[in-house]
């Protein structure tokens, strides 16, 4: 497992790249920018990334992170990859529901399920 920056760790399993957010709170614009850069660099390393974003440590985040996720998803699809979010706690999940981003992101209960689903052929 590689520590890419103070904000994320990256691991690999079954063709998937798993990015775990290490911070409990993602608030500041600076933090979001750092995350964006780190994720962009991962996505651009190779086309067709199967990217899992693991939120298990995240207890609080602002809407700036939602903007980041939209940008990341666009970048992933531009590079013909696939994206899954997972292990989102109830309070954070509520933010996704309120903003209806549950309609555009594939969200799974844990990392293993997300990896499994990304390994399945696209429908």
């Amino acid at each position: 497992m590689a520590q890419m920056s103070p904000r994320i760790t990256v691991s690999y399993a079954d063709q998937a790249t798993i990015v775990t957010f290490t911070d409990e709170k993602i608030l500041e614009e600076k933090d979001v920018r750092e995350l964006e850069q780190a994720l962009a660099s991962l996505i651009e390393q190779a086309d067709g990334i199967a990217l899992v974003l693991d939120f298990s440590n995240v207890q609080f985040m602002s809407s700036a992170v939602l903007g980041l996720l939209i940008k990341v998803s666009k970048r992933v699809y531009e590079h013909e990859g696939r994206l899954a979010l997972c292990a989102i706690g109830p309070k954070i999940y509520e933010i996704f529901k309120i903003t209806r981003l549950t309609k555009i992101f594939d969200i799974y209960k844990d990392v293993d399920t997300a990896i499994e689903r990304l390994a399945e052929p696209e429908q």
């Binding site: 809407s63 939602l66 903007g67 939209i70 940008k71 666009k74 309120i98 903003t99 981003l101 309609k103």
Partner: peptide, 12 residues
């Protein structure tokens, strides 16, 4: 608007 990167603060 669902795909915009901003504009969710007021709703929240």
């Amino acid at each position: 608007n669902l795909y915009k990167t901003e504009g969710r603060g007021l709703l929240l």
